[in-house]
């Protein structure tokens, strides 16, 4: 850790103090992120819109008492149904102990890949977001996805391309719709189907010999942080059995063809790609441009 105090003999207490500072700084940062500019500057009043029929002037008689928000069982709703709105559950479990872990059965791995593919148009496409998001500010995404987060049995994966962290919603859109209208079933009907079939994620990278480290079978653009998927907060079946080895690409090499390092133009589909055509009437030289000074050397 670059911020660790130098030549202090109280290493542990230094670490604890440093840890607290970092923790306060990080949580302060995320609290800040959660507030949008408009919320901070109080330019937009927060208000609840009610129907006229429910206004206070109406005489209340024999009306069943509404369940308070806090008493409602929200766990049965939405894509985050497995989450629990209980603070004690938000504690982070320690990562699994390092060391060789049991191999994941192939069918479990395939199921995990399938679940992963369901959120992507093709392997390499930005995944859609399986939960509702705030429309205002994409920065709130990083509160959970900046470092990865576990809430009960749900995992918020760590951002795999931290250098592009500015505007999440530019590429990641909610799969459940940004907004649901009252007559959504009619309005949301798709125009037509789409017959696009994208590339699938390859299940395994080839090994040079049994026991050799597998090569990276997928493209790595926008996936520079391997730990996003393969780390302790990644998809269960895709996690590395040796997270303590911090330099993944030292042993697992990406193929140049997958990596834009080897740009091979596609083979010509048409003769036209190699056959030149000339416009027939261009017999005379072009007229000189008006008042064109000669180009600089």
């Amino acid at each position: 850790m670059p911020a660790a105090p130098k030549s202090s003999k109280r290493i542990e207490s230094g670490f604890i103090a440093g840890g607290i500072i970092v923790l306060v700084a990080v949580s302060g940062y995320f609290v800040g992120l959660r507030q949008t500019n408009s919320a901070i500057s109080m330019t937009r009043p927060v208000s609840v819109v009610r129907k006229h029929a429910q206004s206070a002037h109406a005489e209340v008689k024999d009306v069943p008492v509404a369940v308070r928000y806090i008493d409602q069982d929200w766990s049965a709703h939405g894509s985050n149904a497995q989450w629990r709105n209980s603070l004690v559950d938000f504690q982070q479990f320690p990562d699994a102990a390092p060391g060789q872990q049991a191999a994941v059965p192939l069918e479990v791995k395939m199921a995990a890949l399938h679940a992963r593919a369901a959120r992507r148009a093709y392997d390499g496409a930005p995944p859609t977001v399986p939960h509702p998001i705030t429309q205002d500010s994409s920065a709130a995404c990083l509160a959970c996805h900046g470092q990865g987060l576990q809430v009960k049995d749900r995992f918020a994966s760590k951002i795999s391309h931290p250098t592009f962290g500015g505007s999440c919603t530019q590429c990641h859109v909610p799969s459940g719709g940004a907004f649901t209208a009252a007559d959504a079933p009619v309005l949301a009907a798709a125009l037509t189907g789409n017959s696009f079939q994208g590339t699938e994620a390859p299940p395994n990278g080839p090994r040079a010999w049994p026991g050799a480290p597998p090569t990276i079978p997928h493209r790595t653009l926008m996936r520079s942080d391997c730990m996003s998927c393969h780390g302790p907060k990644g998809l269960f079946a895709l996690r590395t059995p040796h997270p303590e080895r911090q330099s993944c690409t030292q042993c697992h090499v990406p193929a140049a063809a997958n990596d834009q390092r080897l740009f091979m133009p596609a083979p010509p589909l048409d003769a036209a790609k190699t056959t030149t055509a000339t416009p027939a009437p261009a017999s005379d030289p072009a007229p000189a441009p008006l008042a064109a000074p000669p180009p600089k050397p």
């Binding site: 148009a121 859609t128 859109v173 799969s175 719709g177 907004f179 209208a181 798709a190 125009l191």
Partner: peptide, 15 residues
């Protein structure tokens, strides 16, 4: 874009 499932699902209608 309305024929692209991912985009349509995110923004299915006007408002």
């Amino acid at each position: 874009t309305r024929r692209i499932p991912q985009l349509h699902a995110s923004m299915p209608h006007s408002y």
